[in-house]
């Protein structure tokens, strides 16, 4: 057994996993405020990356300006989605809202295809591709940066959900009707959660866009992001971070063992197995809230 190699796999797996967490935090935000899994989070992430590129390449702004500006644009888009599409569905069965988010995802993909075409564009953040060595272990710099962003967002949102606004959002997720009854602005709260998730989508879009290029494939991150969110418990930010690390390590180390046996492609199988097993064995994930049985 080569321990250096194994730890290299594990550490890089954990870093990649934190990038899944970065994506999954967006899903958790919306779930925490409205109990809806947002199937359009992949589409939002992709649009976030495209908006950054549009501001940086097409308008010609420097990246340090283009990224926060894109965050502002996406914040507005998130609010707009609630206003235009979700508001009329408030109180309807979750399945309807789920289908709406799926439709939204397809719509966003189609829109970017129509505006920017399907060829992959590069983000060019300017992060060096020279490997970073931790002892003998090789680490990718961009992954390190992305993991740092994920952890920073994690801390920010943990604090946010303890503020009065954050508590109101959690109340909305618990019970729309009771929230209305005490005058909570439910619609605005849901809009805010979409707005914040859209800002997270910019962060995820920039990092993942740098790693794999900006095209419609970015929206497929939903599959791994959703797996991480479900494993973490859908409404737990801490869960999303820990589940991300777990999935990243299991995927990276597992694939190294399994790929030679099955001739490649075992990563997808591992992710699928994690998702299916979580739902079957532990439906509320590692840290998810349990539905409380009323006495």
């Amino acid at each position: 057994m080569d321990w250096v190699f194994l730890s290299e796999l594990a550490i890089n797996g954990a870093l990649t996993g934190l990038l899944y967490s970065l994506f999954a935090i967006g899903l958790v935000l919306i779930y925490k405020a409205s109990s809806v899994p947002n199937l359009a989070q992949g589409g939002l992430t992709m649009v976030g990356a495209y908006v950054v590129l549009a501001l940086a390449r097409d308008v010609g702004l420097p990246l340090w300006l283009a990224i926060p500006l894109a965050a502002v644009v996406m914040f507005g888009l998130g609010f707009g989605i609630e206003r235009v599409a979700l508001r009329r569905l408030a109180g309807r069965p979750v399945v309807m809202i789920l289908m709406l988010t799926l439709g939204l995802d397809i719509f966003l993909r189609g829109t970017t295809l129509a505006i920017w075409g399907g060829t992959s564009r590069s983000m060019e953040l300017g992060v060096s591709y020279d490997p970073l060595f931790l002892g003998d272990i090789f680490i990718s710099r961009i992954h390190l940066v992305g993991a740092g962003v994920a952890l920073a967002l994690f801390v920010a949102f943990m604090l946010f959900f303890r503020t009065r606004t954050g508590i109101k959002l959690r109340a909305i997720a618990d019970d729309y009707m009771a929230s209305w009854s005490v005058g909570i602005a439910v619609e605005r709260g849901v809009g805010l959660s979409w707005a914040l998730a859209s800002v997270v989508a910019v962060a995820a879009g920039v990092i993942w866009g740098e790693i794999q290029g900006v095209d419609q494939a970015l929206s497929l991150l939903l599959l791994k992001g959703l797996t991480v969110a479900v494993l973490g418990g859908l409404d737990s930010i801490l869960g999303a971070v820990i589940a991300g690390i777990i999935l990243g390590v299991v995927e990276n180390v597992g694939a190294d063992f399994l790929d030679p046996l099955v001739g490649g492609g075992s990563r997808e199988l591992i992710v699928a197995a994690v998702l299916i097993l979580t739902v079957m064995i532990r439906p509320h994930g590692l840290f998810g809230r349990h539905d409380i049985e009323r006495v």
Binding site: A171, M177, A178
Partner: peptide, 19 residues
């Protein structure tokens, strides 16, 4: 409203804050 409907996953203190 009927049926109590407290915010179950919040603490009582947070229930008050939410309102």
């Amino acid at each position: 409203i009927e049926g109590r409907r407290v915010f179950e996953h919040l603490t009582p203190d947070e229930n008050l804050t939410a309102a």
